[in-house]
């Protein structure tokens, strides 16, 4: 059901782009107003979400580690997996952000023969996530060629490596294939794995389909429905210097691609995609495992009104003595 809804949503977005820009010709709306608006929503929403998270106190010291904690000098401690220094946390975070360390540790328990429980590593999700995110990064960097002038050599180099196969003309990019394959895997995993399907929500399918839609329209634009890239770059340099000019004669597919990206940008801060910023704020990853050295004070702590035994006895001593209960202070 969720899948159906998100599919319908994507189709509506594509149709809006197609009808609005392609048939009605509302170029100003789709090429200038929508992107600016989406970027504005993205920036404000992103900061809002991060600040909201940063304002929430962490009541307990909860790093989840998988290594020996630092204690006595002759016990070897694991400084990355169970960091007790700031640099340890940085390296742990880097492993997490760049290589998805915790996903790599993903295990699965399953019943094979009757009464036999097997545990095994399950790295497919890790692989799919790695391929997807790294391809996405390369693709984003490659897009800089439309946004900056002059294009730095490193971007050209990346483009050259990515287009290594030099076939057809223009060459296909390796990352284009990889990202579509990874998205397909991540999508099929939600569809065909009953457990994952059970916990999948509209927002899960929607994000995958939206990014998939962007990738597919981009590939179509490069290889099948070509557009005038010179006009595209002129348009972007205009919009980036706040001198937007309504582009002329760029194919409709470009507007659909741009509109999908605008929707993604505007949707981003309200979605699970905020894990982009959230990963840095996860207390289970970014805290040092130093609970034996530093006392973690719950920021929520307020002075609790207590009634100690001494005070209790002072209050009821006479009555206690009367019924023969033992008391500590006899006077």
């Amino acid at each position: 059901m969720y899948l159906l809804y998100s599919l319908i949503l994507i189709v509506i977005i594509i149709l809006v782009g197609y009808i609005g820009a392609g048939i009605l010709g509302w170029y100003t709306l789709f090429s200038i107003i929508a992107p600016y608006f989406a970027l504005g929503v993205f920036i404000v929403g992103f900061i809002y979400r991060i600040v909201l998270w940063a304002r929430s106190p962490v009541p307990f010291h909860i790093p989840t580690v998988c290594g020996q904690q630092h204690s006595l000098p002759w016990i070897r401690s694991d400084t990355t997996e169970s960091p007790h220094t700031a640099w340890g946390v940085v390296s742990r975070m880097a492993l997490e952000v760049l290589l998805f360390r915790s996903l790599f540790r993903n295990d699965r328990a399953e019943f094979r023969q009757p009464q036999r429980l097997l545990y095994g590593g399950n790295r497919w999700l890790w692989l799919g996530a790695m391929v997807f995110h790294w391809s996405l990064l390369v693709i984003l960097l490659r897009h800089l060629r439309f946004f900056v002038e002059p294009v730095p050599g490193c971007i050209t180099f990346l483009q050259y490596i990515d287009g290594f196969f030099q076939w057809p003309l223009p060459s296909f990019y390796v990352t284009d294939i990889l990202i579509v394959a990874a998205l397909l895997y991540l999508f099929c995993r939600r569809l065909f794995n009953p457990q994952v399907r059970h916990i999948s929500l509209l927002s899960d399918y929607f994000a995958l389909l939206l990014i998939g839609g962007i990738a597919v329209t981009g590939i179509l634009m490069r290889h099948f429905y070509k557009v005038d890239l010179m006009e595209v770059k002129r348009f972007f340099l205009g919009i980036l210097s706040f001198n937007p000019v309504v582009p002329e004669g760029i194919g409709t597919i470009f507007y659909i691609h741009l509109f999908l990206v605008s929707v993604l940008l505007a949707y981003f801060p309200f979605s699970k995609l905020m894990h982009l910023g959230g990963v840095f704020l996860s207390p289970t990853r970014n805290l040092m495992n130093n609970s034996r050295m530093v006392r973690h004070v719950n920021p929520w702590d307020y002075p609790v009104k207590v009634h100690t035994y001494e005070e209790y006895e002072d209050e009821f001593r006479a009555a206690m003595k009367e019924v023969g209960l033992p008391v500590e202070k006899n006077e």
Binding site: I43, L144, F147, V148, E149, P150, L237, L240, S241, N243
Partner: peptide
């Protein structure tokens, strides 16, 4: 840091003086 990196296209062209160039 995040926004300085993300918004490279906005300031890069201003720095190189090629904003709006064709």
């Amino acid at each position: 840091i995040f926004f300085v990196i993300l918004l490279i296209p906005f300031w890069y062209n201003a720095v190189t003086g090629k904003a709006g160039y064709a």
